[in-house]
Design a protein around this nucleic acid. Structure first.
Lengths: 302, 302
DNA sequence: ATCACCTTATAACATATTGTTATTGAGTTA
DNA sequence: TAACTCAATAACAATATGTTATAAGGTGAT
């Protein structure tokens, strides 16, 4: 015998417990959903394992010995432990448990992610989520090093430690006050923007580069009135007619209202966001469930 | 599935724990004393039971998922529980554990039982014993009703609720002071006791009846000087030369010394003591162990 | 590149465990 | 006595668990 558990089995323990609790092998069999001879033999094998009789047989019935009653407590505890394992496994299987850490741009959280996360938490009531915002560079590292479970980031993205799944794309729009002369057009061309005061954001980022090169190719100089870092701020100044903000429609959508109109820019400039996880280990179940939920929400609701 | 434990087995749990702890299926196999394919399959069956992967396979090796680490704690606790069962069973098997309740006459405890109990406690260090004295009638009932585990009682005994095993017999002796004229004889006949002041005990008990009928048959009247209830008291008066005490040698042996001699009475009158337990249920292991120990001590040492 | 040496997984098979049904024997009850 | 209940056992089927042999992939040293 290498280990004291070699011949011990959970079934024997269950049978033993059931006999103690029902005072009969026949009743135990019923409660376990097996037949009486099965219970008799499971008991015999447990008795053989411990090396002494657990019940004395009298008048064709079973009566627990003192030893059996002494063992019963421990057996009960162990079986409860085993049941906890099964329950925990079930919760994990249903992704009903855990702490999901997500990193995403602030405006992405306030915009497309808000409803998705809300729904996900409703579907998995015991799950906790932490949502943080960092610079794209920091976000990449946090995800790659698995300090967080997943993130959303603007594409393209080719960090070697990341797995990237495109999840959402949107167009670039001009956000402007209804009072603005261009506000009645159903699209705004790049040429319309010549000499218009602009509100731009994301200096140094890919999307900004795209805009820059668009103007460059059309040989139009940009009249930058204000540079900022968030879509919310850009929109709030556009609303005050300080100029025209060039923003991601997906993120600006939440600010469109009576005092702010969004008009597509031509030529179209698409933004694409990706779901990122570490390539060093596969997604855990909760992250996988969240990813699927995102795909469904984004493609279904789009 | 009637129960969540249906396909769960301790072996799977052990394999899972061993893999987590050794970081490899090969090492786990070694630590479990089985082969690596066996471990692989036990793991596969556990993964099938929980319904999701517990390790991800990369570069031909196993790496635990977050889910596996979450389960590990519970698994560890449950296996420790199972090991406690095995340990407890072993202790019970060795009769190393428990509380043994014994009832016996006071002089029997102080006499033959003293060394036996001492030895037994040395052999089973974790065992606790309670030793009580009651009237024979009370002792019978206590044992029969299983308020105590066993007892010693003078035979014959035919209470229907008792199992009786004779364990010890001894002869009747006269206890007297060395100054007494009869003290130099190597035996004392019943006729020698005519007109001798006697110290007798156990009025109404079987052994006293025996003595009475012995004198009756020899047509000798008894000169009873003192009646008492314990051998110790009878001997202490005999020591003071108040008279001759007629006592059980087995019980009086402990008082024999320079100032008290024990001389066999003829015709011989034997005392017999029995070990009694309840006939309503078999002896538990500890009681059985104690009984065997008594038999060995009494027959071996006699 | 090739070789030796790791790893894990799988196939094929032997044995043990765990379930089944049918039956027996013992005890209780009408 | 007949009808019932309970536990044990035999005989068998299915499953679990072990084995050995082998495959497939990664690592590291020639």
């Amino acid at each position: 015998m290498k280990s004291p558990l070699n011949t011990l089995s959970l079934k024997s323990l269950e049978a033993f417990r059931a006999i103690i609790e029902t005072d009969s092998a026949t009743a135990a069999a019923k409660s376990l959903g097996i037949t009486q001879p099965g219970v008799s033999r499971l008991l015999a094998s447990f008795e053989e394992h411990v090396g002494f009789a657990l019940f004395y047989r009298e008048k064709g019935r079973l009566f627990p010995t003192e030893e059996a009653l002494a063992l019963y407590k421990e057996v009960e505890l162990t079986l409860q432990g085993a049941e906890r394992i099964a329950l925990l496994a079930k919760n994990i299987f249903n992704s009903d448990l855990g702490w999901l850490k997500i990193v995403a741009p602030n405006s992405f959280i306030a915009g497309p992610l808000a409803d998705v996360v809300t729904d996900f938490l409703r579907l998995h009531p015991k799950v906790k989520i932490s949502l943080d915002t960092h610079t794209p560079a920091a976000a990449r590292e946090l995800v790659a090093h698995r300090s967080v479970d997943c993130g959303f980031i603007q594409l393209p993205e080719n960090h070697p430690g990341l797995l990237v799944e495109p999840v959402l794309s949107g167009i670039t729009v001009c956000a402007l006050s209804p009072q603005h002369p261009l506000a009645s057009q159903d699209q705004i061309s790049i040429h319309d923007l010549r000499n218009e005061p602009l509100i731009l954001l994301g200096k140094g980022r890919y999307s900004r580069t795209q805009i820059n090169s668009l103007f460059g190719q059309a040989n139009i100089s940009m009249q930058i009135k204000l540079e900022t870092h968030t879509v919310a701020i850009a929109c709030s100044f556009a609303k005050r007619n300080l100029g025209i903000a060039i923003v991601n429609e997906m993120l600006a959508g939440q600010y469109a209202a009576d005092d702010l109109v969004l008009i597509p820019l031509v030529p179209a400039l698409t933004y694409e966001y990706g779901f990122i996880t570490s390539s060093h280990a596969p997604m855990n179940r909760l992250t996988t469930a969240f990813f699927k939920h995102c795909l469904q929400s984004f493609t279904g609701a789009q």
